[in-house]
């Protein structure tokens, strides 16, 4: 997918399982929206093949559209339309819509049901956009940055709703640049950057499984020279050791009791006294940082 000579999405290959939540994660401008809009039939890929529910989003668009729900990034409603009026309108275009009152209740839209769209807050517009994507009882929903601009409470409600949809057999594909959102919700995470897929897997796989972990070691006095290398040798090949500053080291590897015993034995050998030893699971943030060399969020 290119615009002029800038390629937005390039050689991206990913598959989504039915009844799962898939998160497409990446920084702004990574090609998340382009990827979604190609699945929704808004954009024609310059090369490659896209199938949604076995259908071509462009050629079979009319057959596909009733089966998918789409939440666009912002806008998508008349400026003078009232929130519930808009939701009811979209519901009427479908054969078996959800009960709009239930949906507005679940998403807290009743507080602004009679408010014109242009006067809704960003979070309210987001919630209405989500409601419009769900109301037709789709098989797949594509939600673009569903919780951007939402307050923490609305974000939790949205996560609940998306989990419940998964439990009811709906496939959810979402884009996000919130790592926590991907970690909390997704069965599979695809990390893209500069239009390329750079990693895929469950949040656990991406953070190297259940045993994958970090140990942050802080000592009372500066380490002697060559400390990271000697610790790596002491721990074996399965670990990576990075010096964070003169008194702290980050160990990435299995945080089991053997490793801990070796770390404390190494401290004794080096004549350093641990001040703190913190165990942590490697977060998606760490993964992202390693893969792209930059932070996802400023």
């Amino acid at each position: 997918m290119s615009y002029g000579d800038k390629t937005a999405v390039d050689g991206l290959s990913l598959a989504v399982d039915r009844g799962s939540i898939t998160a497409v994660l990446g920084p702004n401008g990574a090609g998340k929206t382009t990827t979604l809009e190609t699945c929704e039939g808004y954009r024609r890929p310059h090369s490659g093949r896209v199938r949604v529910l076995g259908l071509d989003p462009i050629a079979d668009r009319r057959r596909l559209l009733p089966r998918i729900g789409v939440m666009l990034q912002g806008q998508g409603a008349w400026s003078g339309v009232r929130a519930m009026e808009m939701l009811r309108h979209i519901a009427r275009l479908h054969a078996h819509p959800l009960d709009v009152d239930m949906l507005s209740d679940r998403l807290g839209l009743d507080e602004c049901g009679r408010t014109p769209y242009r006067r809704l807050s960003g979070g309210q517009q987001q919630r209405l956009g989500l409601a419009m994507a769900l109301v037709g009882r789709p098989e797949i929903v594509f939600v673009d940055e569903p919780t951007a601009g939402m307050d923490p409470a609305a974000r939790r409600t949205t996560w609940e709703l998306l989990r419940e949809m998964r439990a009811d057999g709906v496939t959810v594909v979402l884009t996000t640049h919130y790592l926590e959102e991907a970690e909390q919700l997704a069965d599979r995470v695809h990390i893209i950057d500069h239009g390329r897929l750079i990693a895929s897997g469950s949040p656990l796989e991406l953070t190297r499984g259940g045993t994958a972990a970090t140990i942050r070691l802080v000592v009372t006095r500066p380490f002697p020279p060559g400390a990271p290398d000697s610790l790596r040798i002491a721990l074996g090949d399965a670990t990576e050791v990075t010096q964070l500053d003169e008194r702290s080291l980050l160990v990435i590897g299995p945080a089991d009791s053997t490793t801990l015993a070796r770390v404390s034995h190494w401290c004794e050998e080096q004549g350093v006294l641990p001040e703190s030893l913190t165990l942590g699971r490697r977060s998606l943030e760490d993964v992202f940082l390693e893969l792209t060399g930059r932070e996802l969020q400023p």
């Binding site: 559209l65 009733p66 089966r67 998918i68 009427r92 275009l93 479908h94 054969a95 078996h96 959800l98 239930m102 769900l134 037709g136 009882r137 789709p138 098989e139 419940e164 949809m165 439990a167 009811d168 057999g169 709906v170």
Partner: peptide, 14 residues
Amino acid sequence: MTGTFTPMPGGAAL
């Protein structure tokens, strides 16, 4: 099994 969101897609009559 039917839940609240169990898919039942389709457009209304044109």
